[in-house]
Design a protein around this nucleic acid. Sequence first.
DNA 1: TTACCTTTGCGTCAGAATAACACAAAGTTT
DNA 2: AAACTTTGTGTTATTCTGACGCAAAGGTAA
Lengths: 225, 225
Amino acid sequence: MKPFHSYQNPSLAVDLVVFGYSKQQLAVLLLNRKEEPFKDRWVLPGAFLQMEERFRDTCSRVLKTKLGMDDVYMEQLYSFDEPERDPRGRAIAVAYYALVNPARVAISAGNMANDVAWFNIRELPKLGFDHHAIFEIALQRLRSKITYFPVGFELLDELFTMPELHELYECILDTTIDRRNFRRKIMDSEYIINTGNKREGAQNRHPDLYKFNKKLKKNSFQINV
Amino acid sequence: MKPFHSYQNPSLAVDLVVFGYSKQQLAVLLLNRKEEPFKDRWVLPGAFLQMEERFRDTCSRVLKTKLGMDDVYMEQLYSFDEPERDPRGRAIAVAYYALVNPARVAISAGNMANDVAWFNIRELPKLGFDHHAIFEIALQRLRSKITYFPVGFELLDELFTMPELHELYECILDTTIDRRNFRRKIMDSEYIINTGNKREGAQNRHPDLYKFNKKLKKNSFQINV
DNA sequence: TTACCTTTGCGTCAGAATAACACAAAGTTT
DNA sequence: AAACTTTGTGTTATTCTGACGCAAAGGTAA
């Protein structure tokens, strides 16, 4: 099916802000560009829409082919339209953000290894295009979202401990949260369930393992910053 | 500047959900289409992006030329990409919503009069394209936004009474809110100021006139539903 | 083994925020 | 003028929240 509008339309791309959490650090996945423009600069992964392709499919394609990721949580963020955002010409970007558990994906393998890397969000390099602005909006959205909806679980293992969840929140929100009040709010929301089990073979202490309550859709909580 | 991507790009349009409030009713502005597809069907106002034009400028152009409106509050909503959303071919729509005071704009004048009309949000006709879905998301966003940020004032006169603001909230949120608790929350936020004046020449009672405190940017409030 | 430290789960309590509601002053209607 | 409606301003009981105590259990070091 061909576009019907009279003039030449702008290029249309998706850009992805992929968040990962490990070792108590929030990180973003960046690609090192091998071509102009912005050669050798780090940028957000992205791709142009292919004919008939939907945004979400383009995102999945990027995550799959470039990064080897499947079944990733993602959400549309915002659409960017600055005329000068791409020096090659007019290009619209529809930005999505994604949450992945780095332990479950194998970025380090493959011939892309040198081109792809996780960066701690506090130590980002200078990014190409308008990707820094996109990243900032994504971070803002993530911070806002986890205070009232349990998206944070997407960044952890299926089973996780309360201290792990607590540290995740403190890390993303960049603040300290009282451990006991945090537990109460999360548990009151009924979004997570105590399995009663403990992690085995752990060198450390053995706190309870919790899991996300997928059946629940409407409850709410509010973590104040 | 020409698009640089290799294949023919989808058409790119903006669609506008224009909310207006008058006579204690929340309304949306619709256009009656005079051409196929969806001839004689009501649709959201919108337009294709012109070269180098930004989303926001396209929105302003639509509001100005089709509806005679200036200086309208608007915010990007979401981007829609269903391949079948436009029967003419692939078209991406970036949706914005706008808040206007119908009393300040003159839709009824002009040769467009028969093509443009306000519809109470509870009595919408069947809409063309995927515009019903767009409208629903806009309504959801508006409802959510007014509970924590003072966008509602955009729908009223510059000076308004507390009962007017209260009714606006009850109407948009489709619920009842205790008059006295509502006042306290709004006033505590310091987003609005009591001018001390009264409306003159009113046949009805004479409650105080309030105005929006434009200087304030960071306070917050929370109207619970 | 024992003494000591750290972490986790659960609980308490005072102060803040909220929902429900009372009341008087002033305008409107009959 | 009497009755009613509306508005501005409280008050109060309850809930929610933040700050923090404590005991049980795991880990560490002598």
